[in-house]
Design a protein around this nucleic acid. Structure first.
Lengths: 223, 223
DNA sequence: TGAAAAAGTCAAAAATGATTGAAACCGGCT
DNA sequence: AGCCGGTTTCAATCATTTTTGACTTTTTCA
């Protein structure tokens, strides 16, 4: 292999002084966890076997079991990796300066594209499996709670003027979450239609209403 | 056993002339399918093994494989059984005369309690598994489509006065479906709070708005 | 008695984790 | 520079467990 120029996927916390080339090969670990996440999306949680992960990561199974001694260890690492990745992507899409100053639309759009991303599918697979797998649930819960805290905080940041009107604010948040996630989950098995664009537009409108913002005039058509 | 007085759960289409007691023991089949459904809810789809189903049904595995030669055959029967049961329960809850003539609330309440029923959990498990299991998907699709047709028809029946205002009608339907299912799915892993009652109340209100019905005066508190 | 239901037995396949072995790389040393 | 001990990555093999479905045997009624 060529430890210096590594062809592994981009992300991995570049430890400041992580000298050894050997240690650099911790990128193999991220390769494995990313392969696991891909498998969750492609085959579902339960059908993601160690064989499959190793295959998708381009390693022998034995090599993988060197890095992660058991299947659960891989899952644990994958959950962690997925969580931080998801959080980073979400933060980025939220803090991106809105093109037209329309906070509502930007917020809805941000979460809407988030729940349509494969990472959400992977997390969803894990969440469903965790419903009847207490061990997985205990692994997943911290990440899930952390993400939800972050989600709420992001909402507060996006709508600073909303401070104090707690009840309507929470309502708008809950509504958005349920509608967008409900739609996204529905789209896992159904295909999107033009009717769904109307739902998104309606959601925008109602959030504006709850926030006490003026109606948008003639902008019925979302992209 | 006692073929005449059978302690099996209630439902099974009572064929008019299904004389043989032997054939009556087709109730064993429903016992098996119901056990399978219970397993989906309790253990999830993938962990529902034939051993587990037989165990829950109170049969030996060999006996079960006499009725259903393969695991998939059980699943097929379970899907069919679940679908008809689900459909029946839904029809019943919708056609039940509304206590106070409030169609909107009755409709929302009907679907809300439906998606909180274990049957919905079972169907949900199947739907998620079907996402990455084409064989299961082909089994599930007809039932799913049939149920959705029925759902739409029920909505039309409940709101006969809404005929013609198609766009807002569809919007109200989509919104309700996404919100209620999104909430129900969220509750599979989270616990319900008082905030969620507000979402339900808000949904009621918005449907009334879309239908052009008068606002309910002082009935903010749902049961 | 005889046909169907129920039970029990068996082998094949798949997945897991443990063990063993090979190859590359590090530092240090003469 | 070049060799050596030790470590780390990677590969391969093995035994065990689980699940499945085919098969055979026993029981139960009409």
């Amino acid at each position: 292999m060529n430890p210096p120029s590594n062809s592994a996927p981009d992300d991995e916390e570049r430890g400041p002084v992580l000298g050894w080339q050997a240690q650099k090969s911790a990128s193999t670990r991220t390769q494995i966890t990313e392969a696991a996440i891909k498998c969750f999306v492609e085959y579902g949680y339960s059908r993601t076997t160690t064989t499959l992960i190793a295959e998708k990561a381009g390693l022998s199974r034995g090599a993988m079991l060197h890095h992660f001694p058991s299947r659960l260890a891989v899952v644990r690492a994958a959950v962690e990796h997925l969580h931080s990745k998801r959080l980073r992507a979400f933060r980025k899409s939220v803090t991106k300066p809105s093109s037209d100053g329309d906070h509502v639309r930007q917020g809805v759009e941000a979460y809407w594209s988030h729940v349509r991303h494969p990472m959400f599918v992977a997390f969803f697979e894990l969440a469903v499996a965790a419903r009847s797998d207490k061990e997985l649930a205990s692994i997943l819960r911290p990440a899930q709670e952390a993400f939800e805290r972050e989600w709420h905080q992001a909402a507060v940041d996006v709508f600073p003027e909303w401070r104090g009107r707690g009840e309507k604010f929470d309502l708008a948040l809950d509504l958005s979450r349920y509608v967008l996630e409900g739609m996204a989950i529905s789209f896992l098995t159904h295909k999107e239609t033009e009717r769904d664009q109307r739902v998104l537009g309606y959601l925008d409108e109602k959030i504006r209403e709850l926030a006490g913002l003026p109606k948008l005039t003639s902008e019925s058509g979302r992209k």
